[in-house]
């Protein structure tokens, strides 16, 4: 059993941080949804808020760690232009069935040497690499609002609705990134 440094970072970025984010989201959504007048006792609110403070901040920090590690550590390995030779950008990919250290996943996907794969880059990767950055902005705003207003969220329906929309949007942006990341790592893994 052995993993390269690149594989370790890919697993950390996509699987470990992603799992923590997902768990924090599931708990946070249930907690926020039930913050309504008459749903909880005073003791219940106290207990619920402690978990929400921790859960929303864990989600925000995880979102930042995920996008920063993805953009600055994993993405350069994905997008390196290694296959160019002469006037052909993808000459090195000829006959390839998977990416290697001689041609990057981006080279491999755009070359179409193993089926019609260019859309995975032009749609999947291009969308993922951009939209995922919405997640930490939204998750941090949610974490701040939850901590700053705390139990007051129970009494303010518009504030609660705003937090729920941002919370779900943060998850949606991360889910797009995570789903395409999983597919891309299947079609063209970073090795």
């Amino acid at each position: 059993m052995e993993l390269t440094t690149r594989e370790v970072w890919t697993v950390l970025h996509g699987l470990v941080f992603g799992t923590v984010f997902l768990i924090a989201f599931a708990g946070g959504l249930a907690g926020l949804w039930s913050l309504r007048p008459g749903f909880l006792t005073t003791a219940g609110i106290r207990e619920r808020m402690r978990r929400l403070y921790i859960g929303t901040w864990v989600m925000a920090v995880t979102a930042w760690v995920t996008v920063i590690s993805g953009t600055w550590i994993v993405y350069p390995w994905y997008r390196a232009k290694l296959a160019a030779s002469g006037g052909d950008d993808f000459a090195g990919c000829a006959g390839a069935a998977l990416p290697s250290r001689s041609w990057s996943p981006r080279d491999f996907l755009l070359s179409d040497v193993s089926g019609t794969t260019h859309s995975w880059h032009e749609f999947g990767m291009e969308w993922k690499e951009h939209v995922a950055w919405a997640s930490p902005f939204l998750a941090t705003a949610v974490a701040f609002i939850v901590v700053y207003y705390g139990p007051r969220l129970v009494a303010r329906p518009w504030l609660r609705a705003m937090v729920l929309v941002m919370f779900v949007a943060a998850f949606a942006a991360a889910a797009i990134g995570g789903a395409f990341g999983a597919f891309l790592n299947k079609v063209a893994p970073i090795v």
Partner: peptide
């Protein structure tokens, strides 16, 4: 007046 809309907040 959050406590008026959610009485469970009064004690807090």
């Amino acid at each position: 007046h959050d406590e008026d809309r959610a009485h469970e907040l009064v004690e807090l």
